[in-house]
Simulated scan of single mutants.
Amino acid sequence: MSHQQIPRKRTFLMCSPEHFEVTYAINPWMDPAVSVDRTSAVHQWGRLRETLVGLGHTVHLLTPEAGLPDMVYAANGAFVVDGTVYGARFKHEQRTAEAQAHQAFYETHGWRYVAAAETNEGEGDFAYLPEAHGGLILAGYGFRTEPVAHAEAQEVLGRPVVSLRLVDPRFYHLDTALTVLDDRTISYFPGAFSHAAQRVLVQLFPDAVIADEVDAFAFGLNLVSDGRNVVLNSAATGLAAKLEAAGYTPVPVELTELRKGGGSVKCCVAELRH
């Protein structure tokens, strides 16, 4: 059933891919043998940023650092709820130093930053729905973020956390398989989750928009929504049609180069929730 969706102005953090390359493989999408066109990557990323600004949102920029090619995936550096920043602690050593860059940004800008003791990859594995069940955090585990980090996040952020087990390594972060469309609605691909997690999602979100395998593999769920406008990978045409039928406005963008690192729209965009 479609209904009128209300967009809400958001504040985001992004990081230019000017040092982006694929020289190692820490997820199934990365292949160092496949060449990356960095000029094209920067151009596509720029179009994504322009799209978000054009929709009325504020985009802050994190300074990219040489030797940290995955910094473009800014969503992984922290998880922010109500002005409190739960910092990331990356699983793979290739990304470890990114956490310090994010911490420096947040502390410089006056945010309350809490360093993590447990392994977690920020908004890659955490999603927030402020109006669902009184304010709910969905949290993924199985490949990157450790389940104990879910308890730590709950203590730091003071919001109930629902743990969801990811079972397909191609969906190594929650944000590749599940997305928040508005303050109480999600879209997800059931096949990425354990049977128990699927049952939990059906109970909590009976009206969710269900994505199929084709769009999930096209990184369609790795999207950014302001409650009405949904910025998503242009390859996910089926999901775009489902979202439109549900009352949202799909805004397709092309991110072919950044997909080579195992990410798309959402991976590139952290939300700063004051």
Rank of each mutant, 00 (worst) to 15 (best):
M1V: 09
S2D: 11
P7Y: 13
R8C: 05
T11E: 13
E18W: 00
E18F: 00
E18Q: 10
F20L: 06
A25D: 03
N27F: 06
W29M: 11
D37N: 10
R38S: 03
A41I: 01
V42N: 02
H43A: 12
G46R: 13
T51L: 02
T51I: 03
L55W: 11
H60M: 10
L61A: 13
T63I: 11
T63M: 11
L68Y: 11
P69G: 07
M71S: 10
Y73F: 15
Y73T: 09
V80Q: 00
V81T: 01
D82P: 05
D82Y: 02
D82N: 12
G83E: 00
T84C: 04
T84H: 02
K91M: 13
H92Q: 15
Q94H: 15
Q100C: 00
A104M: 12
E107T: 15
T108L: 08
H109C: 08
G110L: 06
Y113E: 00
V114A: 08
A117R: 13
E118F: 02
E118S: 09
N120I: 04
F126N: 04
A132T: 10
H133Q: 15
A139T: 04
A139Y: 03
G140C: 10
F143K: 14
E146H: 07
E146T: 08
V148I: 12
V148P: 00
H150W: 09
E155W: 05
V156G: 03
L157D: 02
R159L: 09
R159I: 07
V162K: 10
S163P: 07
P169F: 14
Y172S: 12
H173N: 13
L174M: 11
L174Q: 06
D175K: 04
L178R: 07
T179Y: 01
V180F: 00
L181N: 01
L181V: 03
D183G: 01
D183K: 09
S187G: 11
A192P: 06
S194R: 14
R199S: 13
V200F: 07
V200L: 15
V202T: 14
P206D: 10
D207L: 10
A208D: 03
V209P: 02
I210V: 15
A211I: 05
A216K: 08
F219E: 00
L221E: 05
N222P: 08
G227I: 15
G227W: 13
R228Y: 06
N233M: 09
S234F: 00
T237I: 14
A246K: 06
P250H: 04
V251H: 01
L255M: 14
L255Y: 10
T256G: 14
L258E: 03
K260T: 14
G262Y: 12
V265K: 04
V269Y: 07
A270I: 06
H274A: 15
